[in-house]
Design a protein around this nucleic acid. Sequence first.
DNA 1: ATGGTTGTTAGACAA
Length: 260
Amino acid sequence: MSVSFSLTTWNVNSVRARLDNVLTYLDEHEPDVVCLQETKVEDQLFPRVPFMELGYQLALHGTKGYAGVATLTKGAKPEDVQLGFADGPKDKHRRIVACTYAGVRIYNLYVPNGTALGSEAFTYKLEWLARLRAELGARFSPSDNVVLCGDFNIARDERDVWSVEAMRGGTHFTPEEHAALDALEDFGLRDCFRKHDQEPGRFTWFDYRNASWERRQGLRIDYVYATEPMHERCTEVVLDWEPREWDTPSDHCPLTAHFS
DNA sequence: ATGGTTGTTAGACAA
């Protein structure tokens, strides 16, 4: 019999700058698993205590100033923690922490932004995604209980961008990036949010610039992907815009999936 | 708008 749990993924854009917001949110919603991205802090300086006081145990993979991921679990510790890719060169950017919780392999991901077309960062993004796909294929079967969540920095289709026109010439909505998502889906991953909601405009990120939030001009770039058995068990996914209204918000909104 | 804002960290850089 499987254990039901909830999982919140949230790019917080600095866990220290966002500490009050994040703690307030977790205290209210009490998700069993929390996957944070862009923690922007080395592990020694991560504010562990207030999260432990809320009942969480932590798996950290951070570095000074940028990127960084953290997975928090309630009731049981994150087991078999993997930092970075399983094989090959180290994940020097600190963008992956994987762990097992309730018998489910959970990948917390902060996919490289890609910065600009033609940049080294864009090449790195595509190579990083290819490496992720290879790791999944080498280590898992589509029938395993696997969840990949986090900031993918790719908008899936036209419903997931505020303006197709505005995306032209930039990253996050190119054929190459879509092919990378296709490859993950070809492995057997499913978009849990789209199981329950087909509407356009369900954006998870709003640029700090250009009053994007006030205009509701954003992108859906944060996802909970799951293999078929976990997709089956996904009963609901909640995109919460409320914290975007709070003082000093992250540019991303939390997304919470429920698994039965 | 080859800009706009935020965070880290002390001038750019990443996003």
